[in-house]
Design a protein around this nucleic acid. Structure first.
Lengths: 139, 139
DNA sequence: TTGTTAATTTTCAATAGTTGCAAATTAGAG
DNA sequence: CTCTAATTTGCAACTATTGAAAATTAACAA
């Protein structure tokens, strides 16, 4: 996603208001590679701005997603995660700690067994143990 | 998953009871490639056995999954889908009609950008238009 | 065949994640 | 400083799923 400053300009330019809540969320999501859920972001935001509502967090994240500034990913952990990395990439999920990492592949392989399906997009979810958790297991 | 007959034997052998509800679900899931949700299966089952409870459907599907007879997949459609194809495969989801198809790839590509992650599994979800929906659009 | 008992089913309440709606608040234009 | 449309808040509602307890029943032994 773009920087908080750029988003501020972009929001005003399209007749959207730049509220303190939105500015906070811009900042919390910018360069955030933790793939937070709405709820975890709400908790982070609440520490800085007590009283902010979960509803507003959902609203703003959904708006940013519609504007193409965020991507949502669902790795089956029960809640949707928001990703500020909107480049074409994939994800690796640690079975131990649940962390989600961005990963890249040269190109997704072509599929077999289905004729006439027009592929628009392919998303790969890798599962396994992240480096930190592998270390813990070894020790 | 194995055939209803084989499952019947297997269930009895492990001290599990073979109830009419379970037999029905064995039959409904056998060779079922529609990737049904618990709810859609419940609807199907209800037509044959009115009064069967959704809870029983969930229970039985979860049991079959734990026994390795079914796989669950979550393509982000809101509810978990059950797959009687337990071979190593992937899925193609139609953005138009929502249908989920089994697909195969030679091998999932290696990922980049993450050192030390021990990959245990990779699942690819392709999105796009299925053959039937592509036809509709063209016409 | 009939009892017995542990497994299963049913019912219903509870939970988590998310969205809809109406009232209260407020950013930003004039 | 006012005004108004956009936004936030609070809360009810909704969907998918699970927990728990009471009622039922499959399957074994006699």
């Amino acid at each position: 996603m773009r920087s908080p400053e750029e988003l501020t300009v972009a929001f005003r330019a399209s007749g959207l208001k730049v509220t303190p809540q939105r500015q906070l969320l811009f900042r919390l999501m910018h360069n955030n590679c933790t793939h937070p859920t709405a709820d975890s972001l709400f908790n982070e935001a609440s520490q800085v701005m007590p009283g902010i509502s979960l509803r507003t967090v959902y609203q703003t994240l959904n708006d940013l997603t519609e504007m193409g500034e965020l991507q949502t990913i669902d790795v089956g952990s029960g809640s949707v995660r928001f990703d500020s990395n909107i480049s074409d990439h994939h994800h690796a999920v640690c079975d131990q700690c649940g962390a989600v990492h961005d990963v890249y592949v040269n190109r997704a392989p072509e599929m077999r067994g289905l004729d006439g399906f027009a592929v628009a997009d392919a998303h790969i979810v890798y599962r396994g143990l992240c480096a930190a958790c592998s270390d813990t297991v070894k020790r």
